[in-house]
Nucleic acid binder design. Structure first.
Lengths: 193, 193
DNA sequence: CGAAAATTTGACATGACTCAACTGGAGTGG
DNA sequence: CCACTCCAGTTGAGTCATGTCAAATTTTCG
């Protein structure tokens, strides 16, 4: 099982001791996911936190008109989960879907709680992980409330150059909170310069 | 010093043992803050995390045109901090300003690190605190990218009824990402029903 | 009370959406 | 190798959401 990648990832925060690695490895499940396959669907209770080894996911909500709104993308070495559903054990309002064939590691709720309880290093490492995601999300909110679609698109290209090439414009538009048509017009305007 | 309120707050997560309380109390500073006083200004490096005992703060960024955009409010028993600046020790892009006379507790960076290192319970409690804030922010992003100003205003009133009464409409508009004039029109429309 | 700030209102401008039609690859099967 | 389909992307016309600016009014607070 490909757990080295996860252990490496944690070593960016606080490296794990052999005992902690052992505890982690024995509680992680590897899964292979097909393109368009879901690892979370609306109304299901989210059961696990997912670490992406390979591939790319989107997490999104669907509004009353049936439109998808992308909350997050997750590619290699990123985490994806609906915390609200996982921790409160309530039906999720979100979907998590693979946009490419993927390989993932998952930790189920009880295993995660076990790790938090018995090996405090995971509290530290996940604290730092969430703090980093919080910072990112906060920047995104500031963007959303303070700038136009065009400015948000420019900022996205700059902040996520790799993802920008990997994702369709439709997916990017949904993430930015604009329609694909409007993004297309933004792109046409950009070219004129 | 009014630390009981903070200790109570943590007991919602995982109650603190006497030794942990002692460590926390000895590293917390109480401050009285006047209306319109700043506890963080742009270009300063954020030095502490703040717990609000009484009063109300706003954290905001200022754009190229000099307009303020409210990222967060914090009233009693809430935390407020620019994590990006605190942890990376980089100049902040944000302001944190008291909207009412306030009483706060602050933990400086090194004291916070000490608590994380020596008393792992703080990793756990702050992990949970940040996770909860992350969930809130995620809901806000979904709102921002999927609904109109009017819908976001309705949702705000429902989610934060107390804050709604306490804040001026200008402040709420800035938080929602609309102009005060447009919020005023939304409010006029609502009354017609 | 009086100054400053917040709110409202209206006319107009711009950003962004909708819908429908068109374009141009990327598979797929013959 | 071609013909076909399918889907993402583009384009344009019309519309709706929201911003700008200025002025009038109300509220807040020193």
């Amino acid at each position: 099982m490909n757990t080295d990648q996860l252990i490496d990832h944690f070593s960016n925060y606080l490296p794990l001791k052999p005992q902690e690695i052992e505890a982690l490895v024995s509680r992680v499940k590897e899964r292979r996911i097909k393109r368009r396959q879901f690892i979370l669907q609306e109304n299901d209770v989210c059961q696990h936190i997912t670490f992406v080894l390979a591939g790319c996911f989107k997490m999104y909500g669907v509004d009353a008109k049936g439109k998808e709104h992308n909350l997050q993308f997750a590619a290699e070495n990123d985490w994806i989960v609906d915390f609200a559903s996982l921790y409160k054990e309530k039906p999720s309002k979100l979907y998590i879907e693979a946009m490419e064939p993927a390989l993932i590691l998952q930790i189920f709720r009880d295993d995660l709680y076990y790790l938090y309880d018995k090996h405090t290093v995971f509290n530290r490492n996940f604290r730092i992980m969430v703090e980093n995601k919080y910072i990112e999300l906060q920047n995104r909110v500031l963007q959303n409330i303070s700038s136009t679609g065009q400015e948000r698109y420019e900022a996205f290209l700059e902040q996520y150059p790799v993802l920008s090439n990997r994702l369709s414009n439709t997916q990017i538009a949904s993430y930015l909170g604009i329609t694909p048509e409007f993004l297309s017009k933004i792109r046409a305007d950009r070219k004129l310069k």
